[in-house]
């Protein structure tokens, strides 16, 4: 209960900060993912996500909140486990700004390694990810390191009907052709609910500090997801 209160306080604080700003701007990502095993060695993860950017109007006293669909994407990952180390490769396709009829797209290739340092009631995990982002207008190399901690909110295990919490921090370096390299930091706090042993819902809040080395911009992401595991 005490751990859940910490989450609630952080969420309320984030919402208050957002409400105090003259111009409210946040992103909402929603989607679903399916995790499944093929053979003894391979785990697959398929997901569909969308992102919409929400902001208050800039015109006069009109303070209405407007949402714009930024993209729709499909992801496919394949992972091999070597005890506590997981090696994955992935592919992502994004339809950028599909509402406008734009032909903009993005392909993304991912190679990653995740390692569990410690696993008891709490679990500590590091993830190193390398990405090649191919857009219709640019090509970028991205290097990311994320540290995660997760733990149950009740007891020592996560049983159906119980909640869990995940906290992460990620540093991202991006090198784009003909543009200045950029650094980014992403911190998130995530509340999960295990519906049954194979299904869960997650609500998370991520704060991104973009372009740390140029002119830093902050944006809040609210993520909601539904996850199914067939393993």
């Amino acid at each position: 209960m005490r751990r859940f209160s910490v989450f609630a306080i952080l969420v309320i604080s984030a919402m208050k900060c957002l409400g105090q700003q003259e111009k409210v701007r946040f992103a909402w990502e929603g989607g679903a993912a399916l995790d499944y095993q093929v053979g003894k060695y391979w785990t697959f993860n398929s997901s569909v996500w969308k992102r919409s950017i929400w902001s208050t109007s800039d015109f006069g006293n009109d303070k209405s909140l407007n949402g714009n669909l930024a993209f729709l994407e499909v992801n496919q990952f394949v992972t091999q486990s070597i005890n506590r180390t997981k090696l994955s490769v992935g592919y992502k396709y994004r339809w950028v700004d599909p509402r406008s009829g734009s032909k903009a797209f993005e392909h993304r290739l991912t190679q990653q390694m995740a390692h569990t340092h410690f696993e008891d009631i709490i679990r500590l995990v590091s993830r190193i990810r390398i990405e090649q982002r191919i857009r219709d207008t640019s090509f970028a190399h991205r290097y990311r390191y994320r540290f995660s901690i997760d733990f149950p909110l009740s007891g020592e295990n996560i049983d159906p009907g119980e909640c869990y919490m995940v906290g992460t921090n990620e540093i991202l370096f991006e090198a784009v052709n003909d543009e200045q390299d950029t650094w980014e930091n992403r911190s998130s706090i995530n509340l999960g609910y295990l519906i049954s042993s194979n299904q869960k819902l997650e609500l998370s809040f991520t704060y991104r500090l973009e372009d740390l080395n140029i002119e830093t911009n902050g944006i809040l992401f609210i993520n909601t997801g539904y996850f199914i595991s067939l393993k």
């Binding site: 993912a33 995790d35 993860n45 997901s47 992801n75 990952f77 992972t79 997981k86 994955s88 992935g90 990653q112 995740a114 696993e119 679990r123 995990v125 993830r127 995660s148 997760d150 295990n157 996560i158 995940v166 992460t168 995530n190 999960g192 042993s197 869960k200 997650e202 996850f227 595991s229």
Partner: peptide, 11 residues
């Protein structure tokens, strides 16, 4: 031992 799900820390 039934392991805790890992997808939220992997992807």
């Amino acid at each position: 031992v039934i392991k805790r799900s890992e997808d939220h820390i992997l992807y």
